[in-house]
Amino acid sequence: MINKSNLKVEPIIELENVTLQIPLMSKSDFSLKRKIIKSVTGGGFTRSKDNSFVTALNSVNLKVYKGEKIALIGHNGSGKTSFIRLISGIYQPTLGSLKISVKVYPMIERSFIVEEQLSGVDSAKAHYLMMNNSLKGFQDFLEDITEFSGLGDYIFLPLKTYSEGMSARLMFSLLTYKNHECLALDEGLGTGDREFYDKAQVRLNDFLDSSGSLFIASHSTELLRRFCLRGIVFSGGNLIFDGNIEEALDFYEKYHS
């Protein structure tokens, strides 16, 4: 558990009036024909749908300090995933100021980097290279992944021969191998079959405990209470509550009801 009094004064993430607007692309935006007509007619032939967008986040103000573990609370479509994409650098703010001094590692929807005709080893290698830009230490990584996932010799077989549970076990093992300075997790990580579940829980706990700073977006209040001291509540792209996790969960429950 984090003691706020020990936290550094300088925030690692700071949002000031950050708005994120996602443009809605109509068919005409993608049309080469329409662009050509527009250029030929000097813009005389246009449609006034160019400014359609969805406001995914609206004037969000937030400061996050090193070591904080924050629960992102809200119903589907409230802005949690957009917030994770924003702080990870996948999205850039449309308006406002965003200052980030750490590398935020997003875990949203993950899939294997290589195609399913390739083996678990190839998949592990691609993942390792993506994380480290080098294969130094890959053998240790592969041994750990193979042992923890319990795949054994199946690691050498193509991914397409894996059951859903085996794929989930491999994916979980790959994602939780390395600790991150700042982790942003969207919902829980799938763990595959039941017998792997307990083993995975211990690793997930260690993994989340050891991450420097943490954001978890989840509907599991148990998971949020276990890891977070602070909770922020989103609704319709607005940050409507920021405070203690228990208060945030109470607020959300009352707000939602």
Binding site: V114, Q117, A126, M130
Partner: peptide
């Protein structure tokens, strides 16, 4: 340049996948 080993490897993997069978 920094990610060169990764994209070179995933490109090889793409060829391997295409002719895997």
């Amino acid at each position: 340049f920094k990610t060169r080993k990764t994209w070179w490897f995933t490109a090889i993997a793409k060829t391997k996948a295409r002719y895997a069978r």
